[in-house]
Nucleic acid binder design. Sequence first.
DNA 1: TTATTGACTGGCG
DNA 2: ACGCCAGCCAATA
Length: 138
Amino acid sequence: MDSAEFHAAVYHVVRQIPPQKVTSYGHVAKLIGMPRHSRHVGQALKWLSPDAAPPVPWQRVVASNGTISSRGPGTDGAQRQRDALAAEGVDVAVSRGGELRVDFGVWGWFPEPGTVDTGVRREPAEGDDELEGEVDEA
DNA sequence: TTATTGACTGGCG
DNA sequence: ACGCCAGCCAATA
């Protein structure tokens, strides 16, 4: 899988996160079959253009402990993520230290790998004709 | 070529 | 709860 496919897989999976649900970078990495690429999931979302169509609900991906990474003092990314989540009804708690976090027990979405469509089926082969309907069975 | 850098994770104290 | 560290691996410098 090259970089473009990795991006595509990340976007495809992230787009399947239901509204009012959140998951972690690490879990997205697992879902696309690359469990050690959690950081690159973040990169893929970082590089995502805001006017992508269809939109990618990047706000539904947070760190494995449920917190939203600050991305540095001078940035507002975490704030925008909180706003985006709040806008769709997700309760984002704010700790005393100003740390943003969501309760995975309530909002978590962690399906088993293989139960979601990664958008990457198999290597295209000669005469590999396929009905477009059978992308998933679960 | 090697070194550093992450929208990270998991373990240990 | 919090901090520190090792592992991780593509992109950058």
